[in-house]
Design a protein around this nucleic acid. Structure first.
Length: 775
DNA sequence: TTCAATCGTCTTTTT
DNA sequence: GACGATTGAA
């Protein structure tokens, strides 16, 4: 922990300010951004010509190499910003890279127009050549919901059994094909057969045709259509090949086949390509990433230079040693040996727990202790394999009054209410966006059902016009029942009025107006479920966020491509996330929870992809451990609640793959496990002093704020406590009781040991008498 | 057309 | 155990 490391070697800190170049460096004409690089990093930055693969292990300064390389190209005037293509996977990575390049070359950079995600750059290219791939310029980008809705229609239209052949599954097949760069006619026969007895390929073809009719693309198309454009129009390809004299790729181990083909086409113009990645951190195989891309880089790009970055500037010796030994169990890897100058530091701690509640309790205690030692919550993260594991931790932190943030998780734009709101706005701007129109056509309920929709579809198809126009036509006729007809006419009238206002009105005001007049806000106001309040908040948040955009169309283009809103409020909070979303991050202290067979490695991943799956899970473990700078603790439980029933769990095989010399086992304390600890814990919680702490009060406020779902205040093992504390019998109607989860309430009926209680906060519930206490 | 009850599913999720 | 999707009754 008392690490001695020169500040200049600290890779994780963006090089913002600081001392300028030394006198000698200035005398040598050394650029300031080249300071304090190790020889391998320097080589990776200076090898500008030809193909270069930088194998950058965890914490070896990967991002720094990429950004410095860009700065170097610019600084030596090899190319100007518009000639550099730099691709990342996430918007976040793109933003960060932009900021860091800006810092390196001194503030004002005219933007790097071609620095962005694969998809963002794909759209940009397709937009400039839309007509060449059969699209009109203003084409829309479908999200997953739209995609599935469209596929469902197609499946239905083909008279296939929707249940036997779910649209969702077809969507994932199509995604898979697109990831591999396969157009409908290229799909291997065998695979096309796996869906709907050979209809798979047809359905895919029909889907593509429908997309063109709708003037729309899905995410996969952003690459696939780009590929097709390049293949069918060599002149277009050539122009881009000439434009991009330097290509840089981040996280190359995550590229799929389509992305690889795309890059190869662009690089073939003699372009200089530099890919940075780490085969040991490839964890998105299930999303189409091909580790093979990185494994056979030098055959794809003959004469490629491979540079290994093996000096880790992040973790202490024990942590790095454990991670390296673990990943050495994988067979298909290029092989790197990470080294550090750092001290050994603390060993990785390992602790077994009775169940997930105790696991959360143990972690919570450790965190409180760590905090007492003067560390910040911001430096702590909990990494889990699956998101359902998060709940136990959230519950525990709420009771302890520890602030936390969930990273990843259900994203803002994925929420139902946000998608609905955006659908409304989209239809205002694009009346021919059928899928969005369909989404909100009966939301809120306005008496327009399946029958009406079918009628509109028939019309639309026979006339080859968008649904919205078909709706207008149908509303003029007598085909609908009066009630539906009025409702439809009213909706259309509203849209036309909004559309008219969109010319003059400020877009945020228009959004509020649309949400109000459509009855959408009212729908949630009328909803008594606990979630409704949060949804209304989200809608307000959406409008607030829109202010950052000059106009509605620009906002809509943004949301179709950028699915994240990183709201980092800077407050001191524990981070809670899945192992997948932890890639690229680092923390002083890391808790790795739930290392049990079946959960981690995940059984289903193993079943589906066998050995390769196991290796990917192991890479995930490696990613997890290497997130830690100073401390890491692994926990596992002996009993886990899976799909509603308790399972006995065995420790993960990965645990036994860690060398003993790097691990310290924390013996389970006697009071841990089962009833003893639970009761002890409960007594603690009932001391008055507990209620006076700021943390408790924070927790209380949070409960009242309505953020909690029906689970109610997250008291732990309420069941164990209650069952041992309250011998069941003799409750009477009207009696006031307290329930661990639902709070206070009055008994409504008694039926043996079953009670129906009207709770003050949670409403009417059926509970067992052993779960409540007299009050 | 709508609502309530039942059924089936349940890893990860950059765009 | 919990959620979403689908079914069947009003």
């Amino acid at each position: 922990m008392q690490k001695i490391r020169s500040a200049a070697q600290e890779m994780s800190v963006p090089e913002t300010t600081g001392a300028g170049p030394s006198l000698s460096e200035r005398a040598l004409g050394q650029a300031p951004y080249m300071e304090s690089l190790n020889p391998e990093q320097r080589e990776a930055i200076e090898s500008l010509d030809g193909a270069v693969l930088v194998l950058a292990g965890a914490g070896t300064g990967k991002t720094r190499v990429l950004t410095t390389r860009i700065a170097h190209i610019l600084g030596t005037h090899k190319a100007h910003a518009g000639q550099i293509l730099a691709v990342t996977f996430t918007n976040k990575a793109a933003r960060e890279m932009k900021a860091r390049v800006g810092n390196l070359i001194g503030g004002v950079v005219e933007g790097m127009p071609w620095l962005g995600t694969f998809h963002a750059i794909g759209v940009k290219i397709i937009r400039s050549h839309a007509e060449l791939v059969g699209l009109r310029p203003g084409f829309t980008i479908l999200d997953t919901d739209d995609q599935v809705r469209l596929l469902k229609q197609i499946i239905k239209a083909e008279n296939l059994d929707e249940k036997r052949w779910p649209a969702r599954q077809l969507a994932s097949y199509i995604d898979g094909w697109k990831n591999r760069g396969l157009a409908p006619d290229k799909v291997p026969d065998g695979e096309a057969f796996t869906f709907a007895n050979g209809h798979g390929q047809d359905l895919y073809r029909i889907y593509q045709t429908r997309l063109k009719d709708l003037n729309a693309v899905d995410f996969g198309d952003l690459l696939l259509e780009c590929l097709r454009l390049f293949q069918e129009h060599p002149d277009v390809l050539a122009s881009y090949q000439q434009r991009f004299s330097y290509i840089l790729v981040d996280e190359y181990q995550d590229t799929n086949v389509a992305q690889y083909l795309w890059l190869r086409l662009l690089a073939q113009g003699g372009g200089n390509i530099c890919c940075v990645g780490d085969d040991d951190q490839s964890i998105y195989g299930w999303r189409g990433a091909e580790v093979d891309n990185i494994l056979r880089f030098d055959t794809d790009f003959p004469g490629a230079k491979v540079i290994r970055l093996e000096t880790n500037y992040r973790s202490t010796g024990h942590i790095l040693g454990a991670a390296s030994s673990l990943i050495a169990h994988n067979e298909s890897r290029l092989g790197k040996t990470l080294q550090t100058d750092a001290d050994d530091g603390e060993k990785i701690m390992l602790q077994g727990c009775w169940d997930h509640d105790e696991e959360a309790r143990v972690v919570g205690e450790d965190i409180e202790q760590y905090q007492r030692q003067g560390h910040r919550l911001n430096d702590i993260a909990i990494l889990v394999r699956a998101s359902f594991q998060m709940r136990a931790f959230e519950d525990r932190f709420v009771t302890l009054g520890l602030d936390y943030r969930v990273i990843g998780g259900p994203r803002f734009y994925e929420r139902q209410e946000i998608k609905d709101a955006i659908a409304y706005l989209d239809v205002v701007m694009n009346p021919d966006n059928d899928l969005k129109f369909e989404r909100i056509f009966n939301t809120p309920k306005r008496g327009l059902g399946d029958a009406t929709l079918q009628l509109l579809h028939t019309h639309a198809r026979s006339q080859a016009i968008p649904l919205f126009l078909a709706a207008r036509a149908v509303a003029e006729t007598e085909e609908l029942k009066p009630r539906a007809r009025t409702a439809l006419a009213e909706l259309l009238k509203q849209f036309e009025s909004w559309r008219g206002l969109s010319e003059s009105m400020v877009h945020t005001e228009l959004a509020e107006l649309v949400l109000d007049e459509s009855g959408y806000t009212a729908m949630w106001l009328a909803d008594r479920s606990p979630k409704a309040e949060g949804r209304l908040d989200n809608l307000k948040e959406l409008v607030r966020f829109m202010e950052e955009f000059p106009s509605l169309p620009e906002f809509l283009e943004h949301v179709s491509l950028v699915m994240d809103t990183s709201s980092d409020d800077g407050a001191d909070k524990i981070s809670l996330m899945t192992l997948h979303s932890a890639k690229g991050l680092e923390f002083d202290a890391i808790f790795l929870a739930g290392w049990e067979e079946g959960l981690f490695p995940h059984q289903r991943h193993l079943d589906e992809t066998g050995q390769a799956g196991l290796e990917e899970e192991r890479r995930l473990a490696h990613v997890g451990i290497t997130r830690a700078k100073k401390r890491a603790k692994i926990t596992f439980t002996q009993n886990r609640l899976m799909h509603g029933s308790w399972q006995t769990a065995t420790p993960s095989r990965f645990i036994d793959e860690l060398p003993e010399k790097h691990v310290e086992v924390v013996e389970a304390a006697q009071s841990y496990g089962g009833y003893g600890m639970s009761r002890f814990d409960e007594k603690q919680a009932s001391f008055a002093s507990q209620y006076d702490t700021p943390g408790w009060q924070r927790a209380q406020r949070r409960h009242q704020g309505g953020h909690k779902t029906k689970r109610g205040p997250a008291t732990i093992e309420g069941e164990l406590v209650a069952s041992s504390a309250a011998p069941g019998s003799g409750f009477s109607v009207g009696e006031r009781v307290f329930h661990q989860k639902f709070g206070y309430g009055a008994i409504c009926t008694v039926d043996g040991n079953k009670l129906i209680v009207d709770f003050e906060k949670a409403g009417r519930k059926r509970v067992l008498d052993s779960f409540v206490d007299r009050h």
